[in-house]
Design a protein around this nucleic acid. Structure first.
Length: 302
DNA sequence: TTTTCTGT
């Protein structure tokens, strides 16, 4: 029995190590791509060194970043700021931990000059090649390159729309029935909130949730795709804070499984307490906000 | 309306 288990274990290790070694060999031949100084590297933000360290970070986008991040950073792992959104990258899964956006009626309004068709999905070369996802990882994987910060939220400037197409802002998502349907429905709902609230703060990210299997034990199990083993999240979350015109705050939070969802299922049925997402993701949302200032959570008065 | 992929 013990021998059998050992055999099984060593077999698994062999497979794991084999592909790991293949990966490192590949990487070593591609080291020249790392750390090119003049690529559009977006200001790196960390607790110790605030967002003024990158020569590319101008004072105007530094103030935009502090506006986007007004209510606090959910976590500080490999934070990267773009012109109109901020993300934290998870090197292990090759998918962001979270992305943060600040939406208003003004900045989500369609600008005639901005064309999504001009955008290309592109690897984010500011991330070390060991850890960055490539278009080839997604190709024929069966999954969409699903935006975390939605392209539709950044139609004010072509550059903003372009930046949402970096693969650091993508996650493998089920296409038909999820990304192109119910997840898109949720994204449109969030955009529409800017008609009601002057400011909407939106944090989006993946979850890898444990599930009880046949032996009664819980396991976190997720598929990985491509050479880089990009993780396929089991679920995605959105946590929103809306500022009302009279200075109150309201919060809404959603979790959707990364699977085909019937279009008739109402979005409210995906609402969950924000605490449950914080525990599952290892993040703290809107940490700068006293929860006593929040007048409603998921539509319920506090 | 917006979200994508197709061993062409």
């Amino acid at each position: 029995m013990a021998t059998k288990r050992l055999l099984k274990y060593s077999l698994l290790s062999t497979v794991g190590i084999g592909s790991f070694l293949a990966g490192s060999y590949y990487e070593k031949n591609n080291n020249s791509i790392v750390c090119k100084p003049c690529l559009p590297i977006f200001g790196t933000v960390s607790a110790a060194v605030p967002f003024t360290t990158s020569p590319q970070t101008t004072s105007s986008n530094a103030s935009r970043i502090s506006q986007i991040m007004k209510y606090g950073f959910p976590g500080m792992d490999h934070v990267r700021s773009f012109d109109d959104f901020v993300l934290s990258y998870d090197r292990k899964t090759r998918v962001a931990h979270w992305v943060f956006e600040h939406l208003t009626a003004e900045n989500t309004k369609k600008n005639d000059g901005v064309d999504r068709a001009l955008c290309d999905f592109k690897p984010d070369e500011s991330i070390h090649s060991y850890f960055r996802s490539e278009n080839s990882d997604y190709k024929r994987s069966g999954y969409d390159r699903g935006h975390l910060a939605a392209a539709g939220n950044h139609k004010g400037h072509q550059k903003h729309c372009d930046q949402t197409f970096y693969l650091s802002n993508m996650a493998p998502q089920v296409g038909v029935g999820f990304n192109r349907d119910s997840w898109n429905r949720l994204e449109r709902y969030v955009r529409k909130l800017t008609n009601t609230y002057p400011n909407v703060y939106c944090c989006t990210g993946p979850l890898y949730l444990p599930k009880k299997e046949g032996d009664g034990k819980k396991y976190v199990r997720y598929e990985v795709i491509g050479e880089k083993n990009v993780a396929v999240p089991t679920h995605f979350f959105k946590v929103l804070v809306m500022e009302t015109s009279d200075g109150h705050l309201e919060m809404e939070s959603f979790v959707m499984p990364n699977q085909v969802i019937d279009n008739e299922v109402p979005l409210t049925s995906f609402q969950v307490p924000p605490e449950s997402i914080e525990r599952a993701a290892g993040l703290l949302f809107f940490d700068n906000v006293s929860r006593s200032k929040i007048s409603k959570i998921n539509g319920k008065k506090q």
